[in-house]
Design a protein around this nucleic acid. Structure first.
Lengths: 193, 193
DNA sequence: TCTTTTATTATCAAAATTGATAATTTACAG
DNA sequence: CTGTAAATTATCAATTTTGATAATAAAAGA
């Protein structure tokens, strides 16, 4: 009985708006006013649905890791049985990821980790896990390649990918994206020898 | 006559502190209070030496481009006559650049460029110029390589380098730095064919 | 010492941000 | 229609941040 709750949807909307603000203004610059404005909601609704500033931050962090884990799972699942490496690069440097704030949020969290040791450890693991996932895909395509080289290539591909997403906010970065993708492919091809 | 002015030194100190805060908190999160605290000066001295918030931002932007240009000049000047490419990678991924905030400031400026079209254009040019400088070095070492491939490799090296500096704030990223450097070298070696 | 110029400090008001609570409206069940 | 639980709105005080000006202290030269 009573009015149906929409807390789940509202929370998602608020966290989406918060992510946009974090990507644009950073953690400390993402004020509740800006988040409310971005979400098109009254500021009091942020408190009603999520809580205060710290609660909002904590919710963002938890959702970030959940979403990140799911994205990696989906990414791997989208790969074919054969020729996984080039398809991986296709997906990573697809223009559809153009407006994606995930990497920007990650960088904001890394900055905020400066005085949050526990978060710093989680972000380090997050990077390691991502590189490891890329490395696993590469190992599948190049089972004879040396481990050290696979790790290096996976790190390089990850770096190029993160960088593209970092700079994507500028807009009109099609050349950079194309050249980055070509570089990633060249790097992967060094595992063929 | 009169008390000697130290505005130049104070301005440099303030901009240094501002850069640290921008790298950690972003443009909007770098409050005058934080900058003053970081600089160990009274907030009023920021106003006295540089001006208000907008003036501080403008001063940072101008110094950023000046320093950036000089750094590229110094980087090129530090290269030997032969084997420039590997030395370039050595310098780019040297651990001494560990506490360098230059790339972090660049990313903060890119974020702030979202509602500053003129700055967005300058940042795009900044990226292009950096990639072009790397490409020029690579062309010197590999004069027979195809232009498109040189551009791609230069873009990739730049991306890997930017990424390392982005994540360096986490600390203890020696593995990432080493693997990134190895990846950059592998990528450069694809120009040998 | 006196004057001049600048650095530094001391305050103040305005604006922005946050945390919190009360009042009101809305949607559904019975 | 009525009760109820939740959404939404309306306010308020406390804190932070900013912009600005006045007052004071310090360092040089004459």
């Amino acid at each position: 009985m009573g009015r149906p709750s929409i807390k789940a949807e509202r929370t998602a909307e608020i966290l989406n708006a918060y992510e946009q603000c974090v990507a644009r203004f950073g953690i400390e610059g993402a004020t509740l006013e800006r988040v409310a404005s971005q979400a098109g909601l009254a500021r009091a609704l942020i408190r009603h649905n999520v809580g205060n500033r710290d609660a909002l931050f904590d919710a963002l962090v938890e959702r970030f890791f959940d979403v990140s884990e799911q994205r990696v799972v989906d990414l791997i699942a989208a790969l074919p049985e054969r020729d996984r490496a080039p398809v991986l690069i296709d997906i990573l440097f697809d223009v559809r990821h153009g407006n994606d704030t995930h990497v920007l949020v990650a960088e904001a969290l890394i900055a905020a980790a400066a005085d949050r040791p526990a978060l710093a450890k989680r972000m380090k693991n997050w990077i390691d896990d991502f590189v490891s996932a890329i490395a696993a895909v590469l190992r599948h395509s190049y089972p004879d390649a040396a481990q050290g080289r696979v790790t290096a290539v996976a790190t390089g591909v990850t770096g190029i990918y993160f960088n593209v997403d970092s700079l994507a906010m500028l807009g009109g970065m099609t050349d950079l994206r194309r050249n980055s993708k070509e570089a990633a492919l060249l790097l992967v091809c060094t595992l063929e020898d």
